[in-house]
Design a protein around this nucleic acid. Sequence first.
DNA 1: CTCATCGCTAAAAACGATTGCAGATAACTT
DNA 2: AAGTTATCTGCAATCGTTTTTAGCGATGAG
Lengths: 353, 353
Amino acid sequence: MSNVTISDVAKKVGVSESTVSRFLSGFKVRNADVINQAIKDLDYRPNIVARNLKSGKTGLIAVVVPDITNPFFASIVRGAEVAAGDEFMIQLINTGDDLDKESWALRRMVGRVDGMIYVPLQENSSAVDELDNRSLPMVFVDRVIEKNKNLDSVLADNFRGGELAARHLVEHGHSRIAHIGGPISSTPGKARARGFVETLRALKVDLPSQFVVESDFTTLGGYQATMALLALKSRPTALFVANNLMTIGALKALKEKGISVPQEMAIIGFDDHELSDLVDPPLTVISRDAHLQGALAMQTLLEKIRGGNQFPPKQLKVDVNLVVRGSCGSTCRYRNSKTSEFPKTLSASSRSK
Amino acid sequence: MSNVTISDVAKKVGVSESTVSRFLSGFKVRNADVINQAIKDLDYRPNIVARNLKSGKTGLIAVVVPDITNPFFASIVRGAEVAAGDEFMIQLINTGDDLDKESWALRRMVGRVDGMIYVPLQENSSAVDELDNRSLPMVFVDRVIEKNKNLDSVLADNFRGGELAARHLVEHGHSRIAHIGGPISSTPGKARARGFVETLRALKVDLPSQFVVESDFTTLGGYQATMALLALKSRPTALFVANNLMTIGALKALKEKGISVPQEMAIIGFDDHELSDLVDPPLTVISRDAHLQGALAMQTLLEKIRGGNQFPPKQLKVDVNLVVRGSCGSTCRYRNSKTSEFPKTLSASSRSK
DNA sequence: CTCATCGCTAAAAACGATTGCAGATAACTT
DNA sequence: AAGTTATCTGCAATCGTTTTTAGCGATGAG
């Protein structure tokens, strides 16, 4: 047990507790070296909890994500941790798409952490109301809550992602393009769909209403949505899928139905993966730097924590970009398939909104 | 701010702090309902840190992994979190293959958490010595530290994994089989290699020393190791790669060199992935249930925390199993490639060692 | 020689809860 | 109604720090 307290050290040296405390805080103290020695001898370690009680800080930042096994969220968490440096450590919460768990967790965070990085489940949620109004510094990542959208956030340029995808498919000659989207109640689900739909409209490409399917960001959802699209009397010839997991589901459905990509169906996903260029055919995707998103969120949060609420909230966006591989056809002819993508240079810029 | 303390509540009701405290702890109290009302009115929330100081508990479990962006570790963390239930929350630390960061983190954990689930970087590490001897309940997952291997642990049956892989390749007629292993200084690196090597010996298959390459569990490492093997005057015809990332690296190398799988090179990996059956060709792997490993670790840890050290440490192992797809050849002919693997049933059993 | 200044120190008061103890109130007995 | 328990209560101590306050001895100026 770390039973040895500051008072033991003080007693051993023959000074008061306050002197030891001051020594620990870096003040000049008369018997510095003998105190130091005593600390080593006794293997004294300050009780963090007591220190926290006095200071009112915990040294913890909550990172609340839907599911850490989604590589995209894992990257966010990693980025956040790296940016946190030595001062703060990460408390991880998976909400698992469960609204009850989400609000339970949020309520619990008050007083346990100094700040929160938060990927909410739904835009119309009132989960944040659980928190006392100004008590917990918070930054949204990837998604926001509608009624709190004036708070700090670090999103991706989802609208532009949808636009890039639509444009890319149209440029490849497609005119029957479907979209498997995330929940319309989530920030990226909505924005990606909007970018897609509005771009097609601007390009005068007809978009039957059955071609826009709202799904749920899961593999199963993507699979089912694809199956539904394939069951239509007149199928689409191309597919824009709004996240990584649904894209996997879509690919499984296409494979199961024996539909060749990109000949019978072109497909473009959202969010890159190390395996994306190894699937058959290599997957064209819209990508963005999730690590950077996490890091920016942490940075923003730390500014808030350190600076009080003196700065106005800021809404950041990271760029998206198109990674062309083979799954949309044609370009794979021009592409040197022997070009290794390894090692990959990670460089995504960010810009203020 | 959660400025309102138990004393405010007491004052408002006109009782002593201890009465409010007892009410909160579920004791029978005379003016229970008026206290309850006051708590609601003031929106009082107990200060967790103060409570922790008194109780000596923090309600936190540290989960220390090399890198959360590796899906395998993400699953461990998720499994651990699920098994933790309501009582404990997760503090996540990525050591990032950095020994200094690892011991820094471990030292820091004392007093901050009630227990630790720990994937150490190296078997011969002395990182655990940072901790006071019996102060912090701990369970190793996936890897152990040699000198502490009598402590609790939840490993995979790595030796059997190596055996299954070797046997599978031999059964497919290969006699020139190479192994790209993890660091020999890590538990799974060593055990998988041993299972592989000993099985080949038992089967009387010759194994040139250059065919056993020690790498580092990274994508880059797998890539370089594969390149080295391909540069040999007499190449292997099959490859057993000891983890998920190195397998990706190996595939990238093979693709870059234009070597067809499985015709020119069969390959079997370790650890499954949702994308594994979508790569070209579908990847045969040794898999195990990482989620279960994490859950078992948490369960074991909680027993330790609740029961004191009255129980002897236990070493658990989860089963591995062979998932046959196309990357080792032949079987893909007999395999109905249209069979979807979705939805996937997750069921791995565990057994005590 | 006196008084202010400086650099440090110990003692005591927080931080916000829980808990042992002794006393007060309530609930039964007879 | 008085005596005996059984419940519930407030006081004060405690958890291990930090921080404020007041004071102490040495130094330097006038």
